[in-house]
Simulated assay, not measured.
Amino acid sequence: MKNTKLFAYLQLTRPANVITAIADIWAGFAIAGAWDYMATNWIYGDQQFWWNLLWLSLSTIGLYAGGVAFNDVADADLDAIERPERPIPSGRASKKTAFWMSSLLLVFGVICAFQVNPTAGFLAIAVAACAVLYDYWGKHQRILGPINMGLCRSGNLLLGIGVAPEVLEKIWPVGLLPLIYVAAITMISRGEVHGKNRKALFAGGAMYASIFVAIFGLAYLESPGYLQVIPFLALLGYMIFPPLAKAIRTQEPKFIGKSVKAAVISLIIVNAALASAFSGWPIGIVVLLLLPISLWLAKKFAVT
């Protein structure tokens, strides 16, 4: 299968990462109160909830897959030197075809979002624009690059909250959490090729720690059962800090890459913790069910 054209183009979309983007949407629904509403009205069979969840899940699939595939299109020449095994420089995928595939995926993502409401549609446009901006410009900026990448993920969480525009107007600052987390991953990932980025690793670790404090604080403010978020935060810590500690100790690209991979997959746990903070641990578990799917796909497809 790995020699087929289809597999090569699937590699460009980073399927394991796409699952983490779906988790953004599901957590956004929790923050918006949509899961709580569905639990209250399930007996009436609220089909609109499921349609909205489907449309925005499809939207983020298109946006994320299109954005990361564009990244390989933009990096084709550099990858030919540093990562010649990747689909485009290896010749397994055409740069032109990848460009059109990426473009269509982004358009698909925007169209799906507009099926929910105009707010979601315009948020999808913003996410697509941030993704392309990062692919062609942001990644080359030392300070603005991580912020640019963080805005992509922040917009994705807000896209989920956008199912309820009136809630989005009040709670939009929560989008800072994925921005900080992904900005930290982006900083750390710069050592994947050459290593030796101890300062960035320590800074990333500090940013990770701030996420723990923020999520626990939100749980405390939003729910009397705020302690239920602790198991999710414990799992998150188990996933991201041991690989990061090893990367700091060794300064080797291989271990920095493993730290980045663990942090990317753990975005699902971040979202599960957020869902638990706003809608209770059962919804957190629902989001967490995406984790084994992402881990399985990570064995088949590269994450970084």
Results as ranks from 00 to 15, higher is better:
residue 268 I to F: 05
residue 103 S to P: 00
residue 181 Y to V: 05
residue 261 K to I: 15
residue 192 E to H: 06
residue 170 K to N: 12
residue 70 F to H: 10
residue 23 A to G: 13
residue 12 L to D: 06
residue 135 D to W: 08
residue 66 G to H: 07
residue 264 V to A: 09
residue 248 I to F: 05
residue 227 L to Q: 15
residue 108 F to E: 07
residue 107 V to C: 01
residue 11 Q to W: 10
residue 284 G to N: 08
residue 231 P to I: 07
residue 193 V to C: 00
residue 56 L to C: 02
residue 184 A to E: 11
residue 20 T to C: 09
residue 43 I to S: 11
residue 157 L to H: 04
residue 235 L to V: 14
residue 214 A to P: 00
residue 263 A to H: 08
residue 98 A to V: 06
residue 24 D to H: 07
residue 106 L to V: 01
residue 217 G to I: 04
residue 219 A to Y: 12
residue 204 G to N: 10
residue 262 A to P: 04
residue 64 Y to I: 08
residue 73 V to L: 04
residue 127 V to I: 15
residue 72 D to W: 02
residue 180 I to M: 12
residue 193 V to D: 01
residue 227 L to F: 15
residue 9 Y to T: 08
residue 201 L to P: 02
residue 282 P to I: 08
residue 75 D to L: 03
residue 2 K to P: 05
residue 177 L to E: 02
residue 188 I to G: 05
residue 89 P to G: 09
residue 41 N to D: 05
residue 110 V to G: 01
residue 52 N to P: 00
residue 71 N to L: 08
residue 236 L to G: 02
residue 68 V to P: 04
residue 63 L to I: 13
residue 33 G to K: 09
residue 238 Y to G: 00
residue 190 R to W: 02
residue 162 G to R: 01
residue 174 V to E: 03
residue 116 V to I: 11
residue 103 S to M: 11
residue 155 G to S: 06
residue 38 M to G: 00
residue 128 A to N: 04
residue 228 Q to N: 14
residue 164 A to Q: 13
residue 242 P to E: 07
residue 164 A to S: 12
residue 167 V to W: 01
residue 288 L to V: 08
residue 187 M to K: 09
residue 13 T to Y: 05
residue 86 R to F: 08
residue 260 V to C: 11
residue 126 A to N: 01
residue 142 R to P: 00
residue 4 T to Q: 13
residue 128 A to S: 15
residue 83 R to D: 03
residue 293 I to C: 08
residue 104 L to Y: 04
residue 220 Y to V: 12
residue 9 Y to D: 10
residue 130 C to F: 15
residue 205 G to F: 11
residue 73 V to T: 05
residue 97 T to C: 00
residue 187 M to C: 08
residue 98 A to C: 07
residue 173 P to G: 09
residue 148 N to V: 13
residue 166 E to L: 11
residue 140 H to S: 05
residue 141 Q to C: 10
residue 16 A to I: 06
residue 40 T to D: 09
residue 9 Y to E: 11
residue 254 K to W: 00
residue 125 I to S: 02
residue 277 A to N: 10
residue 135 D to G: 06
residue 232 F to G: 02
residue 111 I to S: 00
residue 98 A to M: 10
residue 276 S to D: 12
